[in-house]
Design a protein around this nucleic acid. Sequence first.
DNA 1: TATTGTTTATACAGTGTGTATAGTTCCCGT
DNA 2: ACGGGAACTATACACACTGTATAAACAATA
Lengths: 206, 206
Amino acid sequence: MPPRRRPPPGTEGSGADTRSRILAAARDLAVENGFDEFTVEKVAEKAGVSRMTVYYQFGSKQELLEALLDRLAERGGIDRLAEAMKREDPLDSLTGLIAVFCGFWASDRVAIRRLRSWGGLRPAGAGADALERDARRRRALESVVRRIAQRHGKPGKRYVKDAVDLLQVLTSFESYDVLARESRDERAVARLIDRTARAILGVEGD
Amino acid sequence: MPPRRRPPPGTEGSGADTRSRILAAARDLAVENGFDEFTVEKVAEKAGVSRMTVYYQFGSKQELLEALLDRLAERGGIDRLAEAMKREDPLDSLTGLIAVFCGFWASDRVAIRRLRSWGGLRPAGAGADALERDARRRRALESVVRRIAQRHGKPGKRYVKDAVDLLQVLTSFESYDVLARESRDERAVARLIDRTARAILGVEGD
DNA sequence: TATTGTTTATACAGTGTGTATAGTTCCCGT
DNA sequence: ACGGGAACTATACACACTGTATAAACAATA
């Protein structure tokens, strides 16, 4: 049962969820300034809520960041990955996978960048969260590459391992972030990655 | 004129430089634990020095980290880059460049990883330092790719831009860090990157 | 109305950064 | 030998942020 909330005390009306408002504020704050400015105090202020409420809702700064990452993933359309993986031709799946992740990275690029570099610092928390997501991407890539190797008659183990590792790099956020600099929009990046992936795999391009 | 130092008060003899001891301690601490444990206090303790001495020598935690990154670069053999760039055949330069950077990343992988993810948080400081280094790598890549494009008769602008961006990704620390996981030593990673780079450039491999 | 869940104000402990200040110890030039 | 300066140290402080504790106010619901 979702807990009921009341409208904020000062303001009236406003059926907006407190949790949601806090997450939105956190996201904006992460984008606007660096993580030096990212304090629970300021998140609360921006959300029009007391600091205690943030702790009441999320327990700690860590969990707040994890929740934020979850929300970004949700809004970024990561759920469309499963659909893409169902394509008959594994090369289509690969193209789909690339499009899905580019869509995700592009959906809130700056916020994701900040969240990920924050995560790198801590073994647990938002860091582990991002790593878990990377692991999922890897599993998807493994599945696709294996299917491609089979269909295109590529030699075994080594081919798959190298290809998976290289594609892991190529489809990472860090890659997207570099490739999307200067005059390449989301679709152009996806095309470039797709073309490169095929070169790596040694299959015919366009 | 380098400032003179005296041997530490408790211990006797010991011509070791204080600054150097602090940096060594900082490096070890960064490797051992995460950055939560990385406090000026603990660095000082590990270096057998008072906390004030760290501030006296480096001014702030920021500057300590920058100095550490500088030291890692120095020890990682980055200076051999200039030599590699002088090769007559640009493909040889590319191979050399890749070897130099793989050597650097491999020279203190964990410490570099920690330092870089720390740097991502702050626009100035260790972050800017890493970005500056990335920019230098980029300029080297631009030069090499342009030479390759000329020699191998590749079409203009777009080819160079795409190739530089892709190689920027491929030769980054993040790529090395992924590719060096599980049973690939430094040389194997360098070979894999080299082969992939040639596939991206569309020139003959081995 | 009583209860439960949400929000708030206030106060506090703990930890880390950075500064200020004064004192110590050594080295070196005169 | 003396004085000055550089490196190091001890102590104390201001400040910011995280997280906890406690009690109170408030709304919706049973």
